[in-house]
Design a protein around this nucleic acid. Structure first.
Lengths: 159, 159
DNA sequence: TCAATTTCATTAGTCGGCTAAACGAAGGGA
DNA sequence: TCCCTTCGTTTAGCCGACTAATGAAATTGA
């Protein structure tokens, strides 16, 4: 009973993340970059010509999502696909010149927003904040895998 | 330059929120409830028969999004629309019996996950965590409105 | 060598969010 | 009264994420 969702910390956290994303959007749309694309641009700038599966793994999204995202970014001219002569299954993704320029601007925008977000945090608070987030992450993964495990047991029972 | 997006706190925070949402999904899908719907169910349980605009305001989503969400929930039998005899423009939204049962289960699931998230936080850490999130929220809103203001000035200059 | 399996990518269909434009009802002013 | 505006909702179309099913190339094994 007495669980007040409105005052939950996760609720507040989701709210802040939404506001964060909105701020990012406002700053990047001038470069033909859409909200989900900054991480991909940044990963490509770190290492051009990666294959889609690897990129999907790094962004923690599914390969199918990556395919669609890249299609759109090809259309807006930020990236291009090239076939790998060694393996015809894979396609390697490269930044175009426009993509390279966009990446610089977008990373600068992210830096600026990051700075704003934590402008009033003391160094100790930032360290603590990170530790708390990592703690949440650990416990959520634990919860997920424990549920997964019990589902497996259920499955076994029916086989 | 030296902005390493991968080690940004916002990046970590987004990652944790994604994991959170995934955990929620796993627990609620048994009740025909989809990821965005729990907040709506909970708001309706607090006060049945609200109009869509009011609900959209409370969930901080756009009325158009609310229309589509409610269409789906009507289809899965969680809620129903009724016309307001006083004002033919609005439609009031009510929980069905199934919706009421789902709301109870979903809120319990959210409570459980919330508990897991913060199981290893001391009371002081929870208080601090909330304060830090609110600080971020304040600064992000400030950033957004300042940019809005400068955009207005730009606009004026061209008129 | 050739069939079976694995692997990477794509397509189709769904949900959640948005904007822009349209539509219908309610209200207000001349 | 009638037109104009405002207001709530809806529709269409886009991006981001997912799953499930399919396609096509590479690899494995008999």
């Amino acid at each position: 009973m007495g669980f007040d969702y409105s005052s939950a910390l996760t609720h507040l956290m989701g709210h802040v993340m939404k506001l964060y994303r909105h701020n990012v959007d406002l700053l990047i749309q001038a470069y033909d970059v859409y909200p989900g694309q900054p991480p991909l641009l940044i990963r490509l700038a770190e290492s051009d010509g990666q294959i889609q599966q690897e990129l999907a793994r790094k962004l923690t999204i599914k390969p199918a999502t990556m395919t669609v995202m890249i299609n759109r970014m090809v259309k807006t001219g930020l990236v291009e696909r090239r076939n790998d002569p060694q393996d015809q299954r894979v396609s390697r993704v490269f930044l175009t010149e426009k993509g390279r320029r966009a990446e610089k601007a977008v990373r600068e925008a992210l830096r600026e927003i990051e700075e704003t977000c934590f402008a009033h945090f003391t160094p100790e608070e930032k360290v603590l904040f990170r530790r708390l987030l990592l703690q949440m992450h650990t416990d959520l993964e634990e919860l997920q895998s424990s549920r997964h495990a019990s589902a497996e047991i259920c499955k076994e029972r029916f086989e």
